Amino acid sequence: MRVEIWSDIACPWCYVGKARFEKGLAAFAHREEIEVVHRSFELDPHRAKGDVEPVVGMLMRKYGRSREEAAAMEEQVAATARGEGLPYDTAGRMAGSTFDVHRLLHLAKARGRQSELLDLAYRANFAGEGSVYDLESLARLGVEAGLAEEEVREVLADATVYADDVRADEEEAARLGATGVPFFVLDRRYGVSGGQPAEVFTRALEQAWQGRALQPLGPAGDDEGAAACGVDGACEAEAPSRP
Score class of each variant (00 low, 15 high):
residue 190 Y to K: 10
residue 232 D to G: 14
residue 126 F to R: 05
residue 26 A to V: 06
residue 59 L to R: 02
residue 138 L to N: 00
residue 26 A to T: 08
residue 101 V to N: 08
residue 145 A to L: 00
residue 67 R to K: 12
residue 180 G to W: 09
residue 243 P to A: 06
residue 13 W to P: 10
residue 195 G to R: 08
residue 132 V to K: 00
residue 88 Y to H: 12
residue 116 E to L: 05
residue 48 A to H: 11
residue 46 H to Y: 13
residue 7 S to N: 12
residue 232 D to Y: 07
residue 166 V to G: 11
residue 232 D to W: 07
residue 228 A to L: 15
residue 211 G to S: 01
residue 4 E to D: 15
residue 223 D to L: 11
residue 62 K to F: 05
residue 79 A to I: 03
residue 211 G to E: 02
residue 49 K to Q: 14
residue 62 K to Q: 14
residue 58 M to E: 12
residue 73 M to P: 01
residue 230 G to Y: 14
residue 149 E to Y: 00
residue 65 R to E: 12
residue 3 V to P: 10
residue 65 R to S: 14
residue 147 L to R: 00
residue 180 G to Y: 11
residue 122 Y to S: 02
residue 24 G to E: 09
residue 176 L to A: 13
residue 25 L to K: 13
residue 115 S to I: 03
residue 176 L to R: 15
residue 124 A to D: 05
residue 92 G to D: 03
residue 164 D to A: 15
residue 115 S to G: 10
residue 193 S to T: 13
residue 242 R to N: 04
residue 228 A to H: 15
residue 35 E to H: 10
residue 103 R to M: 06
residue 2 R to C: 03
residue 152 V to R: 00
residue 1 M to P: 11
residue 164 D to W: 05
residue 195 G to I: 07
residue 13 W to H: 09
residue 195 G to Y: 04
residue 55 V to G: 01
residue 150 E to I: 01
residue 65 R to M: 14
residue 34 I to F: 09
residue 160 T to I: 03
residue 98 T to P: 09
residue 144 E to H: 02
residue 149 E to K: 02
residue 61 R to K: 14
